[in-house]
């Protein structure tokens, strides 16, 4: 969808609020840490990463820009767990008090660290067909996409770039957002900055994107 989330290349934003801190939760409020913990703890049965992303994208544009990143996550969980019937929105108007918990035990921390390690794994899936494109080939991105979830940003549409690597097949986000796993060949495509931004861009700068085969057409 051509949504507000697709920020790449939009103009009118001010300077980046650069920070240089090294601490583990850089600038986090306590509520943001709770959202991180919830994200690893809530039972996301049947939910996919792309359904989660699409739910965030479906926030009204005015709200999207005014809502902090982890507050967007919280809103997405409220929506997803209302959508699947776990909660109703009026439930959120009468929360019960949370008990005070002390510091977590060493065993509890070890358990989540083990869970994190066990969750590691590639998204690569067996290929059902040979790749349509080869490394080194020039390709063109699609000019028009659909109104569902996908991962081809506006700034990189209808543009010629060169395939610099191929990663086998990965689940197509468009299908994952609808609850279906459809592996498709994934490539890294490198674009000249001048192709994307015009002749004033530095001649030796590039932008690389990971793009699925159906986002590409022969050049």
């Amino acid at each position: 969808m051509d949504g507000i989330h697709d920020l790449g290349g939009m103009e009118g934003f001010g300077p980046v609020a650069a920070t240089f801190e090294q601490n583990p939760f850089p600038g986090f409020a306590d509520w943001e840490k709770r959202v991180v913990g919830l994200s690893y703890t809530l039972p996301l049965d049947g939910m996919t990463i792309d359904w989660f992303r699409h739910v965030v994208e479906l926030m009204a544009p005015r709200d999207y820009l005014q809502t902090a990143y982890f507050d967007k996550w919280c809103a997405a969980y409220v929506v997803m767990f209302t959508d699947n019937g776990t909660f109703t929105l009026p439930d959120f108007g009468r929360p019960s008090a949370l008990a005070d918990t002390g510091a977590p035990s060493g065993e509890a921390v070890a358990a989540v660290l083990a869970q994190d390690r066990a969750s590691a794994g590639s998204y690569e899936r067996p290929a059902g067909s040979p790749p349509a494109f080869a490394v080194g080939q020039t390709v063109r991105t699609r000019a028009h996409m659909h109104s569902g979830h996908h991962r081809l940003p506006r700034y990189a549409r209808d543009a010629e770039g060169r395939i610099i690597s191929h990663h086998g097949c990965h689940p197509l986000p468009d299908a994952s957002a609808r609850g279906t796993e459809t592996p498709e060949h994934l490539y890294t495509v490198r674009f000249d900055a001048r192709t994307l931004w015009g002749p004033d861009a530095p001649p030796n700068d590039h932008v690389a994107l990971d793009l699925w085969e159906s986002y590409l057409v022969p050049a």
Binding site: K33, R34, V36, G37, L38, Y40, T41, L42, P43, C74, Y77, V78, F81, T86, F87, D91, F92, P95, S96, A97, L98, A99, T101, A103, P104, S105, A108, V109, A111, V112
Partner: peptide
């Protein structure tokens, strides 16, 4: 969100604490 999730038995605050730690 956390209190509703705890109330319904979906999560425990202790588990969330462990992730934060």
């Amino acid at each position: 969100l956390e209190s509703l999730a705890v109330e319904r038995g979906l999560v425990t605050s202790e588990r969330i604490d462990a992730w934060v730690e």
